[in-house]
Amino acid sequence: MNDEVSGNVMVLAEHTGKQVSEGTFELIGKARELASAMGCKTEVILLGSRELAGQLSGADIVVCMEHPGLIEYLPEAYERALLEVLVQRPPRLLMMSNATIGLDLGSSLSARWDAPLVAYVSALDVDGRAVTATAKILGGKVLAEVELKGERGIVTVLGGALSASAAQLGGTPEVIDLVPPAGLDSLRMSLRQVLEPDPGDIDISAADMLVSVGRGIESQDNMEIVLELADALGVPLSASRPVVDAGWLPKTRQVGQSGLKVKPRVYLALGISGAPEHLEGMRNAELIIACNTDAGAPIFGAAHFGTTVDLFDLVPELVDKIRG
């Protein structure tokens, strides 16, 4: 047991049991910056498999909690384990990703550990020991600068908002083991199986160019015109989540946080607003061209070229001109 107070900047590592996620290193990179400004250390929480500690370059300290029930993510198990870490080594700031785990546990840890939480964070700053977070709300249309008062706080951070990679970090962290809390074997939920997506469709992450369509397309019947454009260009059609949820394209074509990350030479976004979860999947494309009738759409903040011409006017013109 370790009952020293840490007051450090803490990052929850996300992993598959074998591999630490890329997003974890983005968080560690930022945590180091904040820790150095606050004169404290960077700690990474590693639940489940201690073997992965070696991958966690950039951390000063890795706090490990080994338990078979923590290798795969399970909300109740992770929540109890994290609460135990927070109670034993209270950090100044806990950073998690604003993806499934952050959306799942941010609010509950905030309530159980009694610390303020800011979600959808795209930037972080410190001023003395005061932490301020910038949150992207309303689909990315508004930024809110928020101060986390008090001696503890939690932020869930958008993927791709901060840049750092494992390669840039380096260093060998000290490893501290914590004993898992009681009760991890008597939970009110269990993991039955891990489901992998169906392979078999084309791989949009390998394409040179993508024509990508969003909710602006309005109906399944209208999909015809964008299919025609993709066909004329000889490139795959991809989409934002609502188009896939509506069943107009298979899941394998979804770009974004819960879909695929793509980095084509050209990404043509048609009727896509540019919500943070979508940007996370395509912001690194070499050239982004966006068509959206709303001049205030956040996609124009990520795109290199944009137009507010109606997609129903633009797409047939493109098709005609390509077909000659």
């Binding site: 799942d104 609010s107 939920m189 819960s258």
Partner: peptide, 23 residues
């Protein structure tokens, strides 16, 4: 879309002391 201090499901679950799963 306007959540600033986190999401409702797990905040509610804590107050009711119930298990929760999101996404």
């Amino acid at each position: 879309a306007d959540d600033l201090d986190g999401q409702l499901p797990s905040a509610l679950a804590v107050l009711l002391d119930l298990p929760h799963v999101s996404v």
